[in-house]
Design a protein around this nucleic acid. Sequence first.
DNA 1: TTATATTAGTTCGATATCGTACTACTGGAG
DNA 2: CTCCAGTAGTACGATATCGAACTAATATAA
Lengths: 149, 149
Amino acid sequence: MKPEDETNEVYRFFTEVGIINQLISTKLEAFLPGRMTATQFGILGHLVRRPEGETPLQLSNAFQVPKTSMTHMLASLENHALITLETNPDDKRSKIARSTPQGAEFLKASMERMSEALAPVLSELGPEPFHRSLPNLTLIRETLDNERD
Amino acid sequence: MKPEDETNEVYRFFTEVGIINQLISTKLEAFLPGRMTATQFGILGHLVRRPEGETPLQLSNAFQVPKTSMTHMLASLENHALITLETNPDDKRSKIARSTPQGAEFLKASMERMSEALAPVLSELGPEPFHRSLPNLTLIRETLDNERD
DNA sequence: TTATATTAGTTCGATATCGTACTACTGGAG
DNA sequence: CTCCAGTAGTACGATATCGAACTAATATAA
């Protein structure tokens, strides 16, 4: 394949990623209360899977959003009592975000509703397209992430 | 594989898509002037490849953003003289967005700078991860898109 | 131990996003 | 032709995003 076509393919890759992101965020946000965002939901899931909690900075690295945006998102999650934010005893500049039981409950309920909404898509596609592309996506994400410095 | 693991994999797929989207948007936006957004850049590319132009509604379907957001983005691109917006003679409710020569020029220059910035990533990864995942992404995008009604 | 640089998070302000409700236009039914 | 239901785009307003500058705490150096 010509290098030109390869570049083109990379470009189309990023375009598809952008559109899928739009489609899935919109679909998910339709289920979420108020103005809660797909990224906020992702953060909640991340925290539910990590009972020890994470700092805002760790989260903004994990989701690649500016820390100033993270401040806002965490404040919103805290307002809904889905997470707690307490100062880190090991470093008083820092905080630790943890999910609450309500947060875990909320996540579970939302994921179930989302699964229902996605059921037609999954039964049409089957798990293979996701299974096959996931390792490649992870590799690309890791490389892009390491490159950033 | 258990159905539970399949669901989990789908979830991780969407998470990776979200993070890659963040990474690449941020990287791209660092090259773009002012507050120009990765989606706006995508729209410009779309229009450059379609000299006959498209209506705002076609564009908002293609990129899966609300038409009210599209109004704003197109106004911004027009302000920068990268596209023109004229009323559609066949339907006076409608408009047609077309790229200008400056738009095409700007796209070319930006893509070259972006390619340079991505060169280390591409030389590390090679084209395969993109090539292998693209058909799956397209399939998933099309299915999600058809589902939406 | 100071002094300085660095780091975590927030505040502030400019801009982007997008839902609701609107206007202008079209096209089909009668 | 005359309605009128439906469609393209926009105005407006509430909220989200995120860069720059800031504060407080910590790490490093002398």
